[in-house]
Simulated scan of single mutants.
Amino acid sequence: MSDSAHMRGPAAVSCGDVSRSSSLAGCSGILGRSAWAGGVRRKIARVAPSTSTVLIVGPTGTGKELIARCIHEQSPRRRGPFVPVDCASITGTLCSSQLFGHVKGAFTGADYESLGCFRAAEGGTIFLDEIGELEPSIQAMLLRTLQERIVVPVGNHREIPVDVRVIAATNRVLDEEVQAARFRMDLLYRLRVMTIQTTSLRQRLEDVSVLAEHFLTRLSKDNGIPAKELSVESLAVLLAHDWPGNVRELQNVLECAAIFSDSESIQPSALRIHKSPAAQPEATAGTIPAALQPFSPHQARGPEPAECLETWLTLPEVEAQHIARTLEVAGYNQSAAARMLAIDRHVLARKMKKYGLRKPEGLQ
């Protein structure tokens, strides 16, 4: 961060590290072969060239900041700063000065002038993470900044124009926060010009193998350790986990395994997966993940079988669909898919030939 963006003394702004294009080399995009990953990549490409405000919504650990950085990196503002702000951490009396700046002597301890996060992001992008945590008084100030594109530093009455693109993110349902009078409706309308929805990792299990390969490659480079790869059994264990911590949890599990694994192939014993109290019993390599289990007609009331015979799946059709879904989730690794299905790899190969299932062209 430049000296003009850095604030000295006790009134320093609590913006995240201000990044520019050269420091965003780690933004490798949204990885995965799932429909969600492909859809988000297309949406980023569409929204990046504009200056419109973007709201990213989804569970914690699903890559909201990565999406924001990728939008910035693909935008005309990529040579300007990217300033992440953790809104959950900027509570209290100094919140307005941290966002909008202050003049010297504005309050006790204000020994230096502060630009604030918005002015530090001039010509670039400010990322307001967990915006649902902002206090009501700050929400009103933010609304004015979004409407007028100006900031008024604490202790000053002069309006200062700012040229900043705003990307916000939250894990809250802001419509419910509005109903509960914890979030301003007019601010929500200002933020929700374009919306990108993230999804939990358990909803896109077909991306686990791609993400795991990426993380292990990066961990090897960052830590100076030999390259590691997942064994077939370890991949099956990862695919059977429900990942309450999402992609962030997967990354942490792989980092620990890569560091403590003595062999180049990471075995299930090296995977330190912490089960939450509400988690299901520990899965084995042969366990079928819940997301892959076929639907049972007893799970919900519906038409009697006689009423829908024309659309009722036959047993071979159910088997073909289940094998196809398992292959997709396993990244068409036949050994891993056979493990998940608890059958021999040669049996799987015969069934794939029987049902005409093959690896899509162009898939690595």
Rank of each mutant, 00 (worst) to 15 (best):
I71T: 01
H72S: 06
H72T: 03
E73L: 15
E73M: 12
E73G: 13
S75R: 13
S75K: 14
S75L: 08
P76L: 14
P76M: 13
P76E: 11
R77P: 00
R77S: 00
R77Q: 01
R77H: 03
R78I: 00
R78Q: 05
R78L: 03
R79K: 08
G80R: 12
G80Q: 07
G80I: 05
G80T: 03
G80V: 07
P81K: 15
P81H: 15
P81M: 12
V83R: 12
V83C: 11
V83M: 08
P84Y: 10
V85T: 04
D86S: 15
D86T: 04
D86M: 10
C87A: 04
C87H: 06
C87V: 07
C87G: 07
A88T: 08
A88W: 08
A88I: 00
S89L: 12
S89E: 04
S89D: 03
I90A: 02
I90D: 00
I90T: 01
G92F: 13
T93N: 08
T93E: 11
T93Y: 08
T93R: 14
T93L: 09
L94G: 05
C95S: 14
C95E: 07
S96W: 03
S96C: 08
S96H: 05
S96R: 15
S97R: 15
Q98K: 12
Q98A: 03
L99I: 02
L99Q: 01
F100M: 10
F100N: 09
G101L: 10
G101I: 07
G101A: 05
G101V: 07
H102W: 09
V103T: 11
K104Y: 02
K104H: 01
K104P: 00
K104M: 01
G105P: 06
G105D: 02
A106S: 12
F107T: 07
F107A: 04
F107C: 08
T108M: 08
T108G: 04
T108E: 03
T108P: 01
G109F: 06
G109W: 05
G109M: 10
G109A: 12
G109I: 11
G109C: 09
G109N: 08
G109K: 15
A110M: 06
A110I: 04
D111S: 14
D111W: 13
D111T: 14
D111Q: 13
Y112S: 13
Y112T: 13
Y112Q: 14
Y112L: 11
E113Y: 09
E113C: 10
E113D: 06
S114H: 15
S114Y: 06
S114M: 06
L115D: 01
L115F: 12
L115E: 06
G116W: 12
G116K: 14
G116C: 06
C117G: 14
C117P: 00
C117Y: 09
C117I: 05
F118K: 13
F118A: 06
F118W: 12
F118P: 01
R119G: 02
R119C: 01
R119P: 00
R119H: 00
